[in-house]
Design a protein around this nucleic acid. Structure first.
Lengths: 208, 208
DNA sequence: TGAAGGTATGAATCCGGGTTCAATACTTGG
DNA sequence: CCAAGTATTGAACCCGGATTCATACCTTCA
């Protein structure tokens, strides 16, 4: 034997893999899944198409991994914001976090939330939506326990909120666009939907 | 000249066209857009692939027409239900109509509401969603005028309601499934979101 | 340095599905 | 029944994009 993969080589391979992933993320962010061809990813990463297949077995494999990584970030961002405060504050923060991120990268948000692709990716999306809805559900469950919110099915309401926010942000986005009052309006709507009594707590100085 | 299209022939052609359309609708209802290949449509309609192109210039053309027809039915069903009663009743009826139809044909509902396909079809979908949201918006606007509902942006709330209902019905549908309380819960949620005071009107005997 | 064995390349291949069109089967009016 | 003109057929063609693999290039270590 005369060759064994050294740490240096391994490091280069890892870097190469990373550059492929970030090329894919870039394309996804800019053009959605339709822009995500192996050829495009390879070119953007500065490698040959065949090289992509040395890191990922499939196009599907690549997509799933990219998807997971991005979803993880979103979920972390939302989770980081639901551990303190009243139920209303928690719900409001989830909406705001969700919304501000979606508005910053609309194509990516659409790709993660709605754009259908592959059975494998769609399965991951389900996980993602569940995680997101989970954040809402936790906040609502908390409020119901406290008595701050009326009795309700937290999972159903959470799903509805995910749908409502996604729709307002990714649907009309293509057309009308979001105004400065969109997010605050969404927050009010979400609180109402959860049955929060607006008289009790006015989330005036809500953190941006 | 020795041949001119007779009424009888024209009738047969119309029937053929209809059978192609309903084949397409059937496939869409059963398998969504991914099942909608020209070959499959032709086979189901009992014609050759080439024949499809004597009625529709494009696959896109076929899809748009099918889409329009289906959307029209949905919109009519909803519109038929928003002209009388209190704002709360109107909102409740839209939710119920929407929901019961979506539950009856989930794959079709998904195809009409969300599944992306073609630029042309997506444009039509925008029209469809607008029409649907329009029904909600009308009901809400009516309520705001009356004073039955608090001041709000009817279009935003309407969009959110469309999103919420779609999400609950087409999202978790794949997994959990809808229980008997799903639709009533959705109605309550929608009324709350619109700011309807539950003390005022209890839509007990809401028409199914 | 050279043999051994990884790694990278990208043109060629494969594949699914829309689209075409020459050949065939019908209809019609005479 | 024939000629003219239309309707139908479905195999062939095309195209975009994933996947492969023979070839060339690098690393390692004795």
């Amino acid at each position: 034997m005369a060759y064994r993969r050294t740490p240096a080589v391994q490091q280069r391979l890892d870097a190469q893999r990373d550059s492929i992933v970030s090329a894919a993320v870039g394309l996804l962010t800019e053009h959605g899944y339709k822009g995500l061809s192996i050829a495009a990813v390879a070119e953007r990463a500065g490698v040959a198409t065949g090289t992509v297949y040395r890191h990922f077995t499939d196009k599907s494999d690549l997509m799933v991994r990219v998807f997971r990584e991005q979803c993880g970030r979103e979920v972390d961002a939302v989770d980081a914001v639901t551990s303190t405060g009243s139920a209303a504050e928690r719900v409001a923060r989830v909406v705001e976090t969700f919304a501000s991120r979606a508005l910053r990268k609309p194509t990516l948000a659409y790709a993660l939330l709605a754009e259908p692709v592959d059975a494998a990716v769609d399965a991951e999306r389900l996980v993602f939506r569940r995680a997101f809805a989970g954040a809402f559900a936790d906040a609502i469950r908390f409020g119901v326990t406290t008595g701050e919110l009326p009795p309700q099915d937290p999972d159903l309401v959470a799903a509805a909120l995910v749908g409502a926010v996604s729709e307002v942000l990714t649907g009309p986005l293509s057309a009308g666009g979001a105004s400065t009052t969109t997010v605050p309006d969404l927050v009010i709507l979400a609180l109402r939907a959860a049955g929060s009594d607006p008289a009790l707590d006015q989330p005036e100085g809500v953190p941006s």
